[in-house]
């Protein structure tokens, strides 16, 4: 393991801004896509009057 402490981990050898900037945006993209898909599904099910609970 290459980390002495948590602050060492967050610093990423001085590149924390770039590393966490990448990972944060990746997280936002994935969460954003999941939320969009689930909203679309909810709206569609409401429109069609479905109560299908299978697989999210």
């Amino acid at each position: 393991m290459s980390w002495e402490s948590w602050s060492d981990f967050f610093a990423m050898g001085g590149y924390g801004f770039y590393v966490w900037g990448s990972y944060l945006v990746a997280l936002l993209c994935v969460l954003g896509e999941v939320v969009l898909v689930r909203n679309r599904r909810r709206t569609l099910h409401k429109q069609l009057g479905l109560k299908d609970k299978s697989s999210l």
Partner: peptide
């Protein structure tokens, strides 16, 4: 983040 070592030229930045 915890197993892969530091890179010889790019340091930690390569973890992207």
């Amino acid at each position: 983040f915890f197993v892969a070592p530091t890179d010889f030229q790019q340091g930690e930045a390569y973890r992207i």
